[in-house]
């Protein structure tokens, strides 16, 4: 870990929602940080709280019924203590976000150029003319052909991949320091996903923004990220460098996740069809407080201790944090 203070430092984040059926603890005590210029992957299955974490960072959670607690330090400032106007000046400028569904996150009645231009007019006070010029530059940057023409088109005139490029152009228009990308390629076909991932990698080296990449696809994480946070039932269960997490997963959930993911090229090693590792059971309800380890109900190694006492997050190997009582401790870290 770098000695200088991180770009974003999340401490004990709790995001709860008050619903008719009770309190949903969508995020329960998550801490992690993102350094300037790095790509952090946040992985987990639906309902693990990864998207709510992202929304909490940008304070896009309706409060009430939601409630965010803990600390979200962006360059040392706690975002949770800022006023709404102060937060607005950060959103889209210092921190911006890309959503999964490019169709619904673009306004259908405004031209692409207007939508990109609006952000820069708002944050940098550019004139309408300069804003359009910036929009054309951004479209060129994200590899959209004939940008001078496209800038006047409406979102429905673009394909899904193009729309996601426009979303990226919008997000990068004010040169943010942190880009939060929530399943940016999930809705896209695999050849288009490859284009967008290549674009993001390429832009990262040019723009230098840190990326928080939220995805359920371990393949995307392996290709894009330096560090990974694995979430389960609103909690962080494991964190480490991408090599550590993929080659030496220590938490039983991470191990299960790796085993249940089929890998391309499997037919080359095995003659017949092989079984995938299953994680038995279902995710626990977030409406009731979970006593003990959140993964206890599905864990193959579960003991009474796990059911009674939630494991603390501990550094079991250098820069490798795990929340499991039974994760072996590497000699160096002990």
């Amino acid at each position: 870990m770098s000695s200088s203070s991180p770009l974003l430092d999340i401490q004990n984040l709790q995001t709860h929602f008050g619903t008719i059926d009770g309190v949903v603890r969508a995020v329960e005590g998550v801490s992690f940080h993102i350094n300037a210029g790095e790509t952090l992957g946040v992985v987990g299955e639906s309902g693990c709280g990864k998207s709510v974490t992202a929304m909490s960072i940008l304070r896009l959670i309706q409060q009430p019924p939601g409630r965010i607690a803990g600390k979200i330090l962006f360059k040392g400032t706690n975002l949770l203590e800022l006023s709404e106007p102060e937060m607005q000046s950060i959103r889209g400028k210092d921190i911006s976000m890309i959503f999964q569904e490019p169709m619904t996150s673009l306004n259908p009645v405004l031209t692409v150029g207007r939508q990109i231009g609006e952000t820069v007019m708002l944050h940098e006070g550019l004139s309408a003319k300069d804003a359009e010029q910036r929009a054309i530059e951004m479209l060129t940057l994200v590899g959209i052909p004939a940008p001078a023409r496209r800038v006047r088109e409406y979102p429905h005139q673009l394909s899904g991949g193009m729309r996601q490029r426009v979303m990226i152009a919008m997000a990068l228009a004010c040169s943010p320091q942190l880009l939060v990308a929530d399943e940016p390629t999930t809705a896209l076909d695999v050849t288009i996903q490859a284009q967008i991932l290549e674009l993001m990698r390429d832009l990262k080296t040019r723009v230098g923004a840190a990326i928080m990449l939220i995805t359920h696809d371990l393949g995307v994480v392996a290709e894009m990220c330096q560090r990974v946070v694995v979430m389960y039932a609103g909690r962080k269960v494991e964190e480490g460098s991408v090599e550590e997490i993929f080659l030496n997963p220590l938490h039983p959930y991470t191990q299960g996740l790796m085993g249940s993911m089929p890998k391309l090229g499997s037919s080359l090693h095995e003659s017949g069809r092989s079984k995938l590792t299953e994680i038995q059971g279902v995710v626990p309800s977030l409406r009731k407080p979970i006593i003990g380890c959140a993964f206890a109900s599905r864990c193959p190694k579960v003991t009474d201790a796990c059911r009674q006492m939630a494991p603390a997050i501990e550094e079991k190997a250098p820069n490798h944090l795990v929340a499991c009582h039974y994760a072996p401790r590497a000699a160096a870290a002990a």
């Binding site: 004990n12 709790q14 709860h16 929602f17 008050g18 059926d21 009770g22 309190v23 603890r25 329960e28 005590g29 409630r67 965010i68 607690a69 407080p289 201790a305 006492m309 939630a310 494991p311 603390a312 997050i313 501990e314 929340a323 009582h325 039974y326 401790r329």
Partner: peptide
Amino acid sequence: LPPDGFNAAPKLADVLPPR
């Protein structure tokens, strides 16, 4: 059993009143 025993995660207070 880990040699140094179990470490429990710190308890977190609910941030919303219960239903």
